[in-house]
């Protein structure tokens, strides 16, 4: 009898889903950190989707979390991205809440949701760095 070798399938790309919350500066921070990841830190191994497409889009959009292991990035503890992704697409691999992360590192939230200042770069770097760690773990862990 021929024995089949089981091969571990590792994902090539990770889906990043920020909440993009309009009301809070932390929502803006989710956008800037995620774009930094997508454009500069992990351009070849990350993809994103607009969160509200889970309702506005079709089957293909709702398949996102089945196609890619996902990391949700929420501005506050309402966890809109995490809960919506879980309900409408699939369970995220990791979930990050920015208010918790900033508190843990003693970094102030940006002062405005409209515009981030130079001083907010530390917060962007912190959040982006945290997502990078989760992306690396996800890619290493496999499906």
């Amino acid at each position: 009898m021929e024995l089949l070798e089981l091969v571990e399938i590792k994902p090539k790309k990770v889906g990043i889903i920020p909440c993009n919350g309009e009301e809070l500066p932390e929502g803006t921070l989710t956008r800037f950190a995620c774009r930094k990841l997508l454009d500069k830190l992990k351009p070849g191994s990350t993809v994103t989707i607009c969160l509200p497409l889970f309702i506005a889009g079709g089957k293909e959009e709702r398949e996102f979390a089945n196609k890619f292991p996902t990391i949700t990035v929420d501005g506050c503890d309402k966890r809109c991205s995490q809960i919506s992704t879980e309900r409408l697409s699939g369970k995220p691999r990791y979930s990050i809440v920015i208010t918790d992360l900033l508190k843990e590192h003693g970094i102030n939230a940006p002062g405005s949701a409209r515009t981030l200042m130079d001083a907010d770069q530390t917060a962007i770097d912190l959040v982006a760095g945290e997502i990078v760690k989760k992306v690396d773990s996800t890619l290493a862990e496999g499906q």
């Binding site: 909440c19 993009n20 919350g21 309009e22 009301e23 809070l24 929502g27 969160l51 509200p52 889970f54 309702i55 501005g75 309402k78 966890r79 809109c80 991205s81 809960i83 919506s84 309900r87 409408l88």
Partner: peptide, 10 residues
């Protein structure tokens, strides 16, 4: 005024 669009999703 505004609110977070994502809040409607939950």
């Amino acid at each position: 005024i505004t609110t977070c669009l994502a809040k409607l999703m939950i």
